[in-house]
Design a protein around this nucleic acid. Structure first.
Lengths: 329, 329
DNA sequence: TTGAAAGCGGTACCAC
DNA sequence: GTGGTACCGCTTTCAA
């Protein structure tokens, strides 16, 4: 591969001069500049950014770690954050942890070796090993989706307790009295714990009751379907169901339909996320809208600020949500 | 930031020795090794990959350019390709071209500066400027979604003509005789042109007729809805509709429902992509399944091979598809 | 206005 | 076994 040296030889000047031309610096005679530019053209010289990065001690790299790509939260987030990063003249180094806690930590280390300038971590859990890894990271880390502020980790989270609380209100207002919750796994504080907690708080507050159950499964339609099939048998009086995600809720809708009950009438159902699926299914799903792309954008902005100032002005940012009224509740 | 030099000083050895320990090389006395490792621990040394990359002239970087993330083809593709790239001990440098032709070319150049080892390009078009940029690229490029084999660009494509052909057959077999097509924009050879061409071929072949129309819009539900609303007025005899994507088809379904016709009975509708939406909507959408994640995996494998052998064994790979029978056709 | 040379942080060859 | 040193490709003083 042709380097600065080759161009210099070809143009009959020194490396320094070629470098100056490449970087548009002042103080190069017009004629030499043109000579050099011609030489650059001629041998198709492309500056080696790796060498530049080494010299300048800046890589312009932002590491982004996600549990998987094909999810609304992450795909939308990536679409939101990428323009911000591009505008800051940086690049996205993407890692798919595939929901694997070990890999998450592994990537934080690898990214530090790669000398990324910052890391955006989409998390589905937050244990002490992960906290440690984040603390060890030289590059600043912004956590998305889980609250790390207790550990002094700048975080961008959704107002999950509030969503649960509001869900309780919506279900009660719609006339439900026997309300259950389907979550994911207990390690996911935000999605499983907080949403349940919020629901519980409202039921206590308004009716001095508690949710009938806290079932758990995966983030899938199928999982929602299977769980609900059983839950309908176990809890015949169930008339309100809050599902931690829209996909779970859509599975629930299907199970309810099969049981000859009518979702939205016999059983009110609520999801979270405003997945596109929720407006297409029938009955259409009442849910909560999260602005995933905006979250990605804000997270990127927060990280960039952190990179510049070495200290964040905001240590925790809570994203709002919007109630979406449809047929199921 | 602490470097090899600092560790060496702290351990009272030379840089070379520290380097040997870092790379687990033979021929280091056990005691020195331990001494060095302690020093590494002590000052929290993390190898600078940028320097290594410069020295070894390898970045372990694979550039991936996509038109946007939040689409089944790209999100699924990314989930498919990332494990392959990880297994090859490389990283994904992600760029979102946001459907912008200029940016696509820009990123190919930037990636070459970054000295990526190869580029995966998810394309929605292929004009001569893009072909040139690919030709100029030092890093090998694999094209996904458009056929660049005529220009000697290794490509991974879907069998779009065949899909169109099969769509024709499915619609005719279901009893449709007045068949229309909704595509995207004419620059998208694969999605717009090929699928239409295949449909046309079957209609010619089986009935010596042609599609009633070739309408065009965007990749969205709304666009499908708006177009279909008008098309139903313009073509009252329409009884078969092939849509270039599932989202367009779902919009069409909605327009048909509003017109008091029954999709699947009065008008047979077919989409492409087997979007999750298509099994949730009602009537559920008959479509074609594309294995997006497998495509990503294959594309990554093809690129890795190209990187190793400097020459591809396969210059073009055509992914198959699967007919999905549901209610709409 | 231009060139020589040091150095970014490693690796690898060659001596000792 | 270990240390010295050249070098990867560029930027950036410092002199000329």
């Amino acid at each position: 591969m042709v380097g600065l040296h080759d161009v210099a030889k070809l143009a009959g000047v020194s490396k320094s001069t070629v470098s100056r031309v490449m970087n548009n610096e002042y103080g190069v005679k017009k004629s030499t500049k043109e000579k050099v530019q011609k030489a650059i053209e001629q041998c198709g010289y492309v500056a080696n950014q790796v060498a530049r990065d080494l010299k300048s001690n800046k890589t312009h790299l932002i590491g982004v770690i996600v549990p998987r790509i094909a999810s609304n939260a992450t795909a939308g987030g990536l679409d939101g954050l990428s323009p911000v990063i591009e505008l800051a003249d940086k690049h996205v180094l993407l890692a798919n942890s595939d929901q694997d806690n070990i890999k998450e930590i592994e990537y934080i280390k690898r990214f530090n070796q790669k000398r990324v300038e910052g890391i955006l971590l989409y998390a589905t859990h937050l244990d002490s090993a992960l906290v440690d890894a984040i603390k060890q990271s030289d590059a600043p880390v912004v956590l998305v989706g889980q609250d790390g502020s207790l550990f002094n980790i700048p975080s961008l989270i959704y107002d999950d307790i509030s969503v649960g609380f509001t869900a309780g209100k919506r279900l009660i207002d719609a006339g439900a009295t026997n309300i259950g919750f389907i979550g994911v796994n207990s390690q996911d504080i935000a999605v499983d714990q907080c949403r349940y907690q919020g629901l519980t708080q409202y039921l206590q507050h308004a009716k001095q009751t508690s949710p009938l159950f806290h079932s758990r499964g995966e983030f899938s339609i199928e999982s929602g379907f299977q769980q609900t099939k059983q839950l309908l048998i176990d809890w015949p009086k169930l008339d309100g169901l809050f599902c931690a995600t829209d996909r779970i809720a859509i599975g629930a809708l299907k199970a309810i339909a099969e049981s000859k009950k009518i979702a939205g009438k016999d059983i009110k159902v609520l999801g979270v996320g405003n997945d596109e699926l929720s407006q297409v299914c029938s009955p259409s799903l009442s849910t909560f809208n999260y602005a995933f792309d905006l979250t990605g954008k804000k997270a990127a902005q927060m990280l960039l600020e952190l990179i510049h100032n070495k200290q964040s002005e905001v240590s925790k940012m809570v994203m709002g949500f919007e109630s979406i009224e449809r047929e199921s509740c």
